[in-house]
Design a protein around this nucleic acid. Sequence first.
RNA 1: GCCGGUGUAGCACAGCGGUAGUGCAGCGCUCUUGUAAAGCGAAGGUCGGGGGUUCAAGUCCCUCCACCGGCACCA
Length: 648
Amino acid sequence: MGQITLTFPDGNRKTFPAGTIPAQVAASISTSLAKKAISAQVNGQHFDLQWPIHEDATIAINTMQDDAAALELIRHDLAHVMARAVQELWPDVKVTIGPVIENGWYYDFDRAEPFTPEDLGQIEAKMKEIINRRDPVTTEIWDRDRAVKYYEANNEPYKVELVGMIPEGQPIRMYWHGHWQDLCRGPHLQHTGQLPADAFKLMKVAGAYWRGDSNRPMLQRIYGVAFRNREALKDYLHFLEEAEKRDHRRLGREMDLFHMQEEAPGQVFWHPNGWRIYTTLQDYMRRRQNANGYVEVNTPQVVDRRLWEASGHWEKYQEHMFIVEVDEEHAREKSVNALKPMNCPCHVQIFNQGLKSYRDLPLRMAEFGSCNRYEPSGALHGIMRVRGFTQDDAHIFCRESQIEEETRRFIAMLSAVYADLGFEKFRVKFSDRPDMRAGSDEVWDKAEAALQSATEAAGYAYELNPGEGAFYGPKLEFVLTDAIGRDWQCGTLQVDFVLPERLEASYIGEDGAKHRPVMLHRAILGSFERFIGILIENFAGKLPFWLAPRQVVVASIVSDADDFVREVVARLVSAGVRAEADIRNEKINYKVREHSLGKVPVILAIGAREVEDRTVTLRRLGEQGTQTVALDAVVAELAAAALPPDLA
RNA sequence: GCCGGUGUAGCACAGCGGUAGUGCAGCGCUCUUGUAAAGCGAAGGUCGGGGGUUCAAGUCCCUCCACCGGCACCA
């Protein structure tokens, strides 16, 4: 048997017989390391302590101190322990897959009876029992036939299918946790006793399609979360509570921004407070667009199916459109229309009016386009995913040679807008050509290169999403990260070679001949509804002053102050501040509490002293202290703060 | 659309086969108040819609709708 040389992280080298397993390497260092070891990094690969090493390599032994490895193993082993617990409790349940996900894992089961919340408690107890058994984890490599026969004999059809999916030449690895067995690529811990019995929790049961395919059976998925210790779990559960307090549906009610009701599922009833946010944001975007060379248009809501057939949407998205049929009772001829689900075909109609010259390009056509889509009922979510929404949409008609410059300008505008709205950082994703696509490779080459180089020129790194582009062209997607670390994909820029062709857009070039323009579809916010939801959650309702629907409440302390309160409100309103009076017969404590819960950024309290001195006592949301200031100074300061960032 | 859960007063919730309850908000009265809930009083609900079982149904069954959590979808 040959020898191999292993290099340790400190640079030391040692020779071992070929086929040595990391467990033996750990034991050669110390018995305590052998006990504490959970896995190894071998040539950078996450390695099971039982996998043999056949050649020279770098090696590092992982213990629970190594965050990434520890969390990966804890979550992965718990997935197995949970599956085992379920099968111990209900032997007829069939197991499928159970991967590690962010903060935990899930495992999908096939069981006739639904799992109940009580079942989760029972499973959790059984898992703790299994952990306390300290069962050793062992592994073997089987050949395909043996694995298939084994699973057929054990009536585990999903596992049979999984074995069949493992590519030729890749090992089919079996793991044993005591007597329980699962197909798994590993690695795993040494024994179940290495798992923290008090740092995991089963969270919820949910349906999930086998292999993500809605034509295949619905399985039952159990989600769990796990961390290295009890404190980390507690922190995470606390984080969930905090996230719930930011929920835009809850804040929407508490701040009286909007509501939704049964008669109009997926559509928003904007209350005065919410609509102030909406119009403030829209006015801001309109100024930004004007400053960036866009022209604004507006197009019809109800459009005959012929246009959607021509654009290709009828064929693909008919099921998801609101159809409006007009019959002979009302009109001479029956017609079938759709509420517009998008604006682009209408924008091409405007482009097509009159002859366009190359001198007209690039033509940046913007619309706050009100769209309706019949989204599947299960997709609806507050104001984030709705059936009626308004996009900050625009289409840039340009020549291929202008794609790069237009992309660069767009990214500059988008980053300025995001910064103004409180998002300093965003990520860029680039999706290139899919297998099914329109247009020649030559054109795709040019479009992809233009998007990439414009992104790089703008100083942004991008993540590649291979093959995820639209069938009509490559795209960029812009992803915001919010205050508690969640990602939101908002902006997009898509190159489209197809729609101008289908809807016969053209311009006259310098050569006097007709040419096809390229269309860039682009949005920065995405939809106002969703973006306002994101703003609410990002700021936990405490919107920046300029966006706050109620900026100032002027509250009387004694009724003798009422006249001065009204005067202060009038001064603020005429200075452009959204101010209102609260002269109800209530204690100042009560008023402060109520307006603080309503997320009003500034409360001005006025009692006898303030009336006497023509001052106000100012209290800012989230602060304990107050300051008493002269009226003129406060009006000037608040008027300045109320200006949108592009006007300040 | 699929799986599971939920739907009781404006809001948050209790009641789970025998004449609909609590807190807060709202309304009335008293209090003129100094920075996160003053006191008292009178009200307020065809218990999501429809159908069924029963002497009797928020309570049990069926069905539809909406919402919540996932999955699938997202031009």
